[in-house]
Design a binder for these strands. Structure first.
Lengths: 198, 198
DNA sequence: TTGATAAACTAATGCTATTAGTTTCATAAT
DNA sequence: ATTATGAAACTAATAGCATTAGTTTATCAA
């Protein structure tokens, strides 16, 4: 009993390890305590509640996703950057199922704190689209579209909605989805340019 | 005590009413029993477990969404149909937050039963894209893309990921997303036609 | 050596779902 | 009319979850 070198960092690390291993986005305090050789209430000496733990893991997930994405688009611009970003994004979700599931279930409309934590991801996509010469508003719009496509694809996949037509190549669908975004963006840019010339 | 005219239908109806009212995708048996003036274990005379209840509500949600969508695209074809479908889809999610949340959290990769129930929705989108002259495989791909965009948009919105740049018109983003899909599809069709002519 | 503090503990509460075993009521058969 | 059966309610109990209150222990500084 007494002091055992438990810290918030170790708790979060163990939670992350579990989530990475199982693919589930959460872990119960019971299971977490068991793995740390401690009784559940002891965890409350280091964390406020499960919410705070979730925030910490969410933070970790976002940080890693953002680092992963930054690395993927380094030195790239335009379509090439968008393509690299998309491929990396989808790959991250596949490699870290539990973490991505957390990212895609965690925040809620009212939860300001969680949304703050997710800001870096948004900024990254804004940067990604900055080389197309769009105005700030349009960057905001297209940022939403790109994220909707990528996230929507992953979400449907995860939910099993793409299970039907199983035989049909998922990889090709993904490429088409990304190409669709680029073609849609190009068409928009052409129209915008034309409109400005008149 | 004794018999009170409780049925599975009434239970499901009450669960649906709660979900529609609160916007939450689930209801606890405790709350459900309370609303039906019954003790929680009594519900087990009519349902197997919460899973079965969820299936029933999910079924209801899918049926209504499909009916709503069928009605929206009646008589329409091509881009007009896609646009009407998209607008109606997004409107349904807004009007039935709880039901759509259930649709977007319920099935899981391993749950064959839930995925069966969702099939009509898939078929609807396949029909929607049937007038473009795509081959079966390409319909399957583009069906995925359209659903990814619509669902991804709703999901991000619901999660609060579009909260930033709050001032920027959500409605316009939605229109851009749908237009993006159509432009992407048109570009794809042009390329396909060209390839066939060579 | 002592005393304060941090960090563990036990015990208990209250929320879930669920099961076992019991009672009651309505209906069908005598 | 009476009785018996089965459906549908009940009570009581179990088990898993988060959480709180109150208690003990170990470490570290005075």
């Amino acid at each position: 009993m007494g002091t055992r070198g438990l810290t918030k960092e170790k708790i979060v690390a163990e939670a992350v390890a579990y989530i990475e291993h199982t693919g589930q986005p959460t872990i119960s305090l019971h299971e977490l305590a068991r793995r740390l050789n401690v009784k559940p209430p002891s965890l409350y000496n280091h964390i406020q509640n499960t919410k705070e733990l979730q925030y910490a893991v969410f933070q970790y997930a976002i940080d890693h996703l953002v680092a992963h994405q930054k690395n993927a688009v380094e030195q790239l611009k335009g379509d090439e950057a968008v393509r690299a970003f998309s491929i990396a994004y989808l790959a991250f979700a596949a490699a870290h199922k539990g973490l991505y599931r957390l990212i895609m279930t965690m925040p809620s409309e009212q939860d300001e704190q969680a949304k703050e934590l997710a800001l870096p991801l948004l900024e990254l996509v804004v940067d990604l689209l900055s080389s197309y010469g769009l105005c700030a508003d349009d960057i905001a719009h297209w940022q939403r579209v790109l994220r909707a496509i990528l996230h929507g694809f992953l979400s449907q996949e995860d939910l099993g909605y793409f299970y039907y037509y199983n035989s049909i190549d998922l990889e090709k669908s993904r490429e088409l989805a990304v190409q669709c975004f680029l073609d849609g963006l190009h068409t928009f840019l052409n129209h915008t340019v034309k409109a400005e010339q008149e």
